[in-house]
Amino acid sequence: MNIFRLFGDLSHLAAIIILLLKIWKSRSCAGISGKSQILFAIVFTTRYLDLLTSFISLYNTSMKMIYIGCSYATVYLIYAKFRATYDGNHDSFRVEFLIVPVGGLAVLINHDFSLLEILWTFSIYLESVAILPQLFMISKTGEAETITTHYLFCQGLYRALYLINWIWRFYFEGFFDMIAIVAGVVQTILYCDFFYLYVTKVLKGKKLSLPA
């Protein structure tokens, strides 16, 4: 464990908690892409099946349980409890265009052709594009609530910190995972235009609104 991975995990945890609290307290999921949240629930489910097969550490196990629990709770709030506030018209990204290619790629390019490994690889590839429905929804509505931009910033920062973690581990541990690194680079690149808007607008107290 190194400081970059720790702060990456804490940033990821913050994002998940921010979103859950925002929906719970405002009793509304307006502006939130339910499709992205479903994809994240799939990412955690397919990645953390090793909860059933191996124990790494209390930290590892407890964080995985929290991620899975919060992501399903978020999906439940969006599609069940506060479904009346779900903006289905703007959450129109065709997720099958993500899941099918990612599924195919996971079968073709992986470290080991075993079920758990292919599911893990699928989860890594899917996570790199899981935020697209959310970013697409913001581009369609042309704006995002400030709390949602904080959620997105933490979500984007987490994998950016993981990239530094992988540089650290390559240099100090001689360890690297090419699949995780390439997917992590793609994932972080997808946030770049949002990061630019976040820094130039939200951090200056303005509302995040895209030129319609």
Binding site: I56, H111, G174, D177, M178
Partner: peptide, 10 residues
Amino acid sequence: LVDGGAKDEL
């Protein structure tokens, strides 16, 4: 160098 197995990460 070890490639693969970033399974100790989240």
